[in-house]
């Protein structure tokens, strides 16, 4: 019966390995719930994006090349994060530090571009208080930006741990979770780019 294949067997499995596997699985489940939260934000944006209350529309506010730049930067950071993980599995501490430093800088650049877009909107009077469209735009994009910020904070703490303690199994597991998180954020951004910017400019 194929039934027993899905079960951890206490006799053969290493206790720590089984626990790590559960942690990674549990984190995947958490990422799914985070995805669902973003879905709520997308639903709100979809419903409210035309409610400009007489204010400027998406066509007037969004700069597509700028958004493309943000997208490519984040995509590259997702790639370099993956390379960092490969180095971690090959136990190359310095490569890990290097690749994650690049990822960090790219992430920081992404945030910087996003914040400059926000400040431009705010300075023109297009704040989140102006109408429902801007409320939903700022909340959706800034929630993603907040996740990126948390990711950067997490990344710097992990790099500190790698620097001082080396690539222990515990820290490698943390890096696995971090990289899952970072890839997930790029995936969410694909849809923000498409639904907010591409569809906004169409």
């Amino acid at each position: 019966m194929k039934a027993t294949k899905d079960l951890p067997n206490e006799k053969t499995d290493n206790h720590k390995a089984a626990a790590d596997e559960r942690t990674i699985f549990g984190f995947w489940v958490y990422l799914m719930t985070d995805l669902l939260m973003f879905a709520g934000l997308f639903a709100a944006y979809a419903v409210l994006h035309n409610n400009t209350f007489g204010g400027p529309t998406t066509h007037e506010l969004f700069n597509l090349p700028f958004a493309l730049a943000e997208t490519l930067i984040l995509l590259t950071s997702s790639f370099t994060c993956g390379l960092g993980m490969l180095a971690a599995h090959k136990n190359k501490k310095n490569h890990v530090l290097a690749w994650f430093a690049v990822t960090f800088l790219l992430g920081l650049a992404f945030l910087g571009l996003e914040l400059s877009e926000f400040s431009k909107l705010v300075s023109e009077g297009n704040t989140w208080q102006r109408n429902a469209f801007l409320s939903s735009f700022f909340t959706l994009v800034a929630t993603h930006g907040l996740h990126i910020t948390v990711g950067l904070l997490w990344m710097s703490i992990c790099m500190g741990a790698v620097w001082f303690r080396g690539l222990t199994p515990g820290i490698t597991r943390k890096l696995t979770l971090l990289s899952m998180f970072w890839h997930f954020l790029d995936i969410v951004w694909i849809f923000i780019f498409t639904v907010v910017y591409l569809m906004g400019v169409m």
Binding site: L48, N51, F53, W128, Q129, N131, A132, S135, S136, T139
Partner: peptide
């Protein structure tokens, strides 16, 4: 989102400024 409306003055569910 309700908190956004109440704390940050946004307009997701208000009766004006395009809220629904």
């Amino acid at each position: 989102l309700l908190t956004m409306d109440r704390f940050f003055g946004m307009h997701f569910f208000t009766t004006n400024f395009g809220g629904n």
